[in-house]
């Protein structure tokens, strides 16, 4: 074990080496940059000189305005081929890009933006929830608060999507999310999902173990009208709020059951396989992607001062 003096010496030695290396890199970049600038300057001067030489060859009576003449003359000159025209059209190419219609859906309809809420911070978190009986549903305070704030429809007139995690309980005991349970719920909830019911497998603790979540994208009305399988109790919470809270059994205050074990969070775990079923029942599989549910929809995350996770996603028709 290194003592304090050795560590201090090492720290300063490594720092000096790193600073020197960074300096060398900076110098190299500066050299390359300056060379590129010089080259560009030389090219620019050359081009100007060439243009002037071209103008000077045009007969005096046609030199006004010179630049226009050169351009027109050059494009229309006998033997001027497509290559020349296309090179010359670099400027007009920019204009074409500007005039391009905005990116459209495949069916040529304009893209709408849909708002997806996946996290919401409330002060009074129900860290310990009441375990629902079979056939009952518990909606988290955060999800309820988010629904109260964002409502059913966003400013574009689209239904707001709430990305939620669904925890299953049986006789007030949490049961693990398995692929079988997910398939069973997929079949049962098919008509209730808007954009899909997902099953995720996370690799936790650098692959030591894995855990599973069942999640879904629901509209407000779908959450409010969610029907429970009489064999299960349900806890529905926002996706980014759900971290496996302990759930208490109200009949037994000393008893605490966990929604899943062991805990694993997004920022410390590598997602191994993420399966997502779209609204047509097709399964989309993504690997090794931490923010798959956002990227899948080409979304960008917007965090507001309340630390809520709100996603504005491109909705392809």
């Amino acid at each position: 074990m290194k003592n304090y003096e050795e560590v201090t010496k090492n720290v300063f030695r490594k720092s000096e080496e790193l600073i020197a290396r960074n300096q060398r890199r900076r110098n190299t970049i500066m050299t390359i940059g300056m060379s590129a600038c010089c080259l560009a300057a030389v090219c620019g001067v050359g081009a100007i000189a060439w243009n002037r030489a071209r103008v000077s060859t045009v007969p005096a009576e046609t030199t006004a305005p010179a630049a226009q003449l050169v351009s027109d003359d050059y494009a229309n000159a006998p033997g001027a081929g497509d290559t020349v025209v296309s090179e010359n059209s670099a400027v007009s190419g920019d204009a074409v890009v500007v005039q391009h219609p905005p990116i459209m859906n495949p069916d040529e309809t304009p893209i709408d933006y849909i708002t997806t809420v996946s996290g919401f911070e409330v002060e009074d978190f129900d860290t310990v929830k009441i375990a629902p009986d079979n056939g009952q549903i518990h909606i988290s305070k955060a999800l309820q608060a988010a629904m109260d704030k964002y409502g059913a429809v966003d400013e574009n007139g689209n239904e707001v999507i709430y990305r939620v995690v669904i925890a299953h309980l049986q006789n007030r005991q949490t049961i693990p999310a398995t692929e079988e349970l997910w398939e069973q719920e997929c079949a049962r909830l098919k008509g209730q999902t808007v954009y899909g019911l997902g099953f995720e497998t996370y690799s936790c603790d650098w692959g030591v173990h894995s855990e599973h979540w069942i999640h879904a994208d629901f509209t407000k009305s779908k959450i409010e009208s969610f029907t429970a399988d009489p064999n299960y109790g349900y806890v529905i919470d926002l996706y980014d709020n759900y971290h496996g809270y302990p759930i208490t059994d109200p009949n037994d205050p000393n008893h605490v059951c966990f929604s899943h074990e062991p805990i694993c969070s997004n920022n410390s775990a590598d997602h191994e396989n993420i399966h997502h079923e779209d609204d047509h029942g097709n399964q989309i599989t993504n690997t090794n992607n931490e923010s798959v549910h956002h990227e899948e929809n080409h979304g960008t995350q917007v965090t507001n001062p309340n630390n809520e996770s709100v996603h504005h996603n491109n909705h392809h028709g």
Binding site: T127, H243, Y245, S265, S268
Partner: peptide, 15 residues
């Protein structure tokens, strides 16, 4: 330190 919410830490410590 652990880039988690206070709530997550409470749960983690408990477990």
């Amino acid at each position: 330190v652990m880039h988690k919410s206070k709530r997550q830490i409470e749960v983690l410590i408990y477990r």
